[in-house]
Design a protein around this nucleic acid. Structure first.
Lengths: 162, 162
DNA sequence: CTTCAAGACTTGAAAGTTAAACTAAATCGG
DNA sequence: CCGATTTAGTTTAACTTTCAAGTCTTGAAG
């Protein structure tokens, strides 16, 4: 740690802006989902990712990866979702270590109910305030940051759903 | 909620990229601070904001505002920081409702110790991957988003410290 | 000068997350 | 085939955050 180059004023402001934007945006989304569907954003993501998977099911490991959750966190979350009746656990047929999490019909219904409001909120908070050009250049910048944060592309940032 | 305009492919990808970037960046920062200084980012912010305030002290309300914390969360956090001996609570002289949180010398020392590593991490994760132009345009975009998220400028995004 | 709403916190319990330890099943290298 | 690893997942406890309620001022109205 030789000579820690301090942040200049522009950097300072950029850093602040990033911190506040990501916090306020995440809070807005969380509030909306909690209010309208009674679940946090992380839980919504679990349902959403399951709904897009073949058979509306994934192993816990696969699911943990796509929602970027630790195994532990996912396990707790799926406990809750199972209690709510939105997800069901099954044993994997051939690999008996694996557990399969499957979206129930009820869970799917909840998701279908929740999605429009969620998408509307994303649009309102993220896309309405930006021009198309701003959005595209924003995306490029985010990709540059992602490249540095996650060189191996662990993150499933290919075109997928919300 | 009439006709929920879905996200197109570009929007989809932008939204994903934002989600992942903000998560990975926040995680990286949290990990670094937890590892090197044994505290979460939110606690670091409390110390940092106090250190920049006149007399290294603020009322709980003021502090809650600058770190964007609920009163309750801040109260719990300050309990921990007080146990650690990094912050001290005092009664406000004239308004006996108010409590003043004051950074102790020990807390200041911890912050001074922690700051360089933290700044280095911010630089590494956020600024190194971007060109100066990218950074400046990124900041503009974030300001546009902030304007929509927080029209009353509650967020202290004027030039300040980390 | 009382009354009473609003302001500034604190508290306790519940929800969510993290960290570390643990079980069980599959795989790999002799 | 067998022991050592690795992989998959759960569990427990600690910790952070949120939510709802409660305390003690202040300030403003009547």
């Amino acid at each position: 740690m030789t000579e820690p180059r301090w942040l200049d004023a522009d950097e300072q402001e950029t850093w602040r802006a990033f911190l506040w934007t990501s916090r306020l945006l995440n809070e807005a989304l969380d509030r909306q989902l909690q209010r309208d569907s009674g679940m946090p954003h992380a839980y919504y993501m679990i349902l959403a990712m399951l709904s897009e998977s073949p058979g509306r099911a994934l192993t816990m490991s696969e699911l943990a990866e796509v929602v970027h959750s630790s195994p532990s966190r996912l396990s707790h979350a799926v406990n809750r979702l199972e209690e709510a009746g939105w997800v069901r656990r099954t044993k994997h047929a051939t690999d008996r270590r694996a557990t399969i999490a499957e979206l129930t019909d009820e869970g799917y219904a909840v998701l279908v109910e929740a999605a429009p409001g969620h998408v509307a909120e994303v649009r309102r908070r993220l896309f309405d305030p930006l021009t198309r050009e701003q959005m595209l250049e924003f995306r490029e910048t985010l990709h540059a940051l992602l490249e540095a944060l996650d060189p191996d592309h662990t993150a499933p940032c290919a075109p997928d759903s919300s």
